[in-house]
């Protein structure tokens, strides 16, 4: 197909749109940064894109709770548009604040969008923290992932603790392979803080839906796309394809192959 097109949504307080666009550009997508007011005014513009990204930031200051006001806006103005976008086989990615929005709209984990089964709440430490974490891919059907490849990416958030409503939901997240990533140590084993930086249940760092075409994650893949991003790059560390790039590359490759 022609060059995949990605739309990176902006809103008041979104602040990772530039570097996220840059990552998609490196991955080979044609990228537009669009303010949500513009998309609400003209929802049909989504028709020309195959990848929709909710980037990181503090939409509306994270007032009430992280991502909540933007999620409310999406629910009331763009719900059907995004549902149709997904039904056409397209991809949705939410990073950090974008992940919070996807969960608070019910787009993730996507059991039944009218009810919330999962939330993302305050870190157990009750404070914002910027630190690097290891992520183990857990889902077998999420198109953004590379099975078996543990990623090293930074988190930077104060509200990143993923909590399901109850054990039944948790069981379903596991049995349906909806947990995209979990926090592990550098040997791939789960562990307490700071290996799990926020106290997420089961160390959940990211979720997908049943189609595998939606990914939300707290860590920032767009912050590990250049050799000098890796915190140990002066120690000679870091793979040739930067860990964060895998997510963007996989998305673009999927679109090229399937859409």
């Amino acid at each position: 197909m022609a060059q995949p097109k990605a739309i990176v949504l902006r809103a008041a307080g979104i602040n990772c749109d530039n570097e996220t666009s840059h990552a998609l550009d490196l991955a080979g997508a044609q990228v537009d940064r669009v303010h949500i007011n513009q998309l609400i005014g003209q929802p049909s513009m989504l028709d020309q894109y195959q990848i929709l990204v909710f980037p990181g930031g503090f939409s509306y200051g994270d007032d009430v709770s992280a991502g909540k006001i933007l999620a409310n806006q999406v629910i009331h103005h763009l719900h059907d548009t995004i549902r149709a976008f997904l039904d056409r086989g397209n991809l949705v990615l939410g990073i950090c604040n974008g992940f919070q929005v996807l969960v608070k709209t019910g787009i993730l984990p996507g059991f039944d969008t009218r009810q919330s089964h999962v939330t993302i709440t305050y870190n157990d430490s009750d404070k914002f923290e910027d630190r690097w974490v290891y992520l183990k891919p857990q889902s077998d059907h999420c198109v953004f992932l590379e099975p078996g490849r543990t990623l090293y990416l930074p988190v930077a958030h104060g509200e990143g603790k993923v909590v399901p409503t109850d054990d039944a939901v948790l069981t379903r997240l596991q049995s349906d392979h909806l947990v995209a990533f979990s926090y592990v140590d550098k040997d791939g084993e789960p562990g307490p803080y700071p290996i799990n930086p926020n106290g997420s249940v089961l160390g959940i760092a990211g979720l997908t839906d049943s189609t595998g075409r939606v990914l939300g994650l707290m860590p920032h893949p767009e912050r590990h796309i250049h050799a000098t991003h890796h915190p140990h790059w002066t120690r000679g560390a870091g793979p040739s394809e930067c860990d964060g790039m895998t997510i963007f590359n996989n998305a673009v490759t999927y679109v090229k192959g399937h859409l």
């Binding site: 990772c16 990552a23 923290e129 000098t228 002066t234």
Partner: peptide, 22 residues
Amino acid sequence: IRQYDHEVQGGSVIKPLTGVDN
């Protein structure tokens, strides 16, 4: 230091905390 986002905008080369354990 950790309470500050020192990597947003994607230009971080030398971070305020460094070394084998960051």
